[in-house]
Design a protein around this nucleic acid. Structure first.
Lengths: 221, 221
DNA sequence: GCTCTTTACTTTGGATCCAAAACAACCCTC
DNA sequence: GAGGGTTGTTTTGGATCCAAAGTAAAGAGC
């Protein structure tokens, strides 16, 4: 289990680092040697990564690294949007427990503090990524069924689809500050809607929020 | 590959047939013997089924059959609804090719023919399942990116979530006829919306359509 | 010279073997 | 009698071996 789990995550990293190019055929022995294990855990990992969508069957034999188009990226983001929107709507409809309310308030507060000084520094990127992930996870988790969370988790395996994969341009922290500021506002609006039991509004806000990493840059630049 | 693929689908069947109870621990050797193969393909299959969500890790060792609550079922149906809704909206927004238009028209026509006689016979169930699957697949496929289709496919691995898993009560074909009649109408409305480029309407119709197997019975009874 | 066939090599799939980890039962000690 | 440690059994994970399928290359026939 130790090694097997590691092989999966190591392979994920190798792929997203571009060591294995999209469309490139990927062999069991090759990977096994590179990671210093036998073929067995690699074979197991291939099956997992196939299901995750990072690998695909290459013809009649073996696997290849899946390649993603612009449209794929956009779709993956939209998929996350509708799924998180669904989670938010369900949550608003069933009402939020005071414990969850406190947790969301906590991450909202964290966001305010991070943005309070009016600009971004390098270290803030990690901080935002952290609070953003917690915020989204809290909502999805509270939606009542692991099924939605699983669907999101599987979608998030596509490296560009996860909520915390918001592309941050370290060269343009000024612009990124405005983007995160907007994201923070959206977080606060979502919480507002959740508290009021406004299901449709919470859903739409979450759906729009998913786009922030995708097409906000040009507007907020 | 032959055997490996088979092991996955055979196991899926054994699980959904209830031979392995939800929550029950499932051992590699046990399954291997039952299917007459060695442990290797079973181990591979377990990883696949874990990702599909039918199995889950049982503590520190092995797997167990996942159990699903009422809420899980409802959520899985809703997940399919929002995803197919997303596909339909994208499709409406980008416009449908004449080839797809013809295909959808074909399945619509099939549905009309099946329901034309005014009642259901046993054999119609299979026929409807067939055309229904084709109809849904055509829309999802045409939505432009495999990402949405993959997300739906993964969700459909939950046996009760797939569009063609509409529960048909063979004892009450009268009632089922009304249900399928309603489903047919919804199909036609979706096509209408798609042709008109009415994205939001297409989306909402698909989302509602997902519920038909779930909560229509009591109303149409 | 081109194509088809056969052969050799590469790579994956399945089975078996071995080691390590987990679980359970038992015994010993306090 | 209870708790903890130890031992033994079960089960999984990793490595290796063998067979089968696929691909590529080379040779023969036209």
């Amino acid at each position: 289990m130790t090694s097997s789990r590691n092989v999966v995550s190591q392979l994920r990293k190798l792929i997203s680092d571009g060591l294995y190019q999209p469309g490139e055929r990927i062999g069991e022995v090759q990977v096994a040697e590179q990671l210093g294990v036998s073929r067995t855990p690699v074979r197991l990992a291939f099956r997992t990564l196939e299901q995750e969508g990072l690998l695909e069957r290459a013809g009649k034999r073996g696997f290849q690294v899946r390649e993603f188009t612009e449209t794929d990226v956009r779709c993956a983001v939209e998929v996350r949007g509708v799924l998180e929107g669904l989670a938010a709507r369900r949550l608003a409809e069933q009402g939020i427990a005071s414990e969850l309310d406190a947790e969301l308030a906590f991450w909202i507060q964290k966001g305010r503090e991070l943005l309070a000084k009016g600009y971004l520094v390098e270290a803030d990127i990690e901080g935002w990524s952290e609070l953003n992930r917690h915020f989204h996870e809290a909502i999805v988790k509270a939606a009542g069924s692991p099924v939605i969370g699983d669907a999101i988790a599987r979608n998030n395996h596509l490296p560009f689809a996860a909520a915390d994969s918001i592309i941050i341009d370290r060269q343009a922290l000024e612009q990124e500050y405005r983007k995160l500021h907007q994201a923070q506002l959206q977080h606060e609006l979502v919480v507002q809607a959740l508290r009021q039991g406004e299901g449709a509004r919470a859903e739409m806000l979450m759906r729009e929020h998913a786009f922030i990493g995708l097409r906000y840059a040009e507007l907020l630049g």
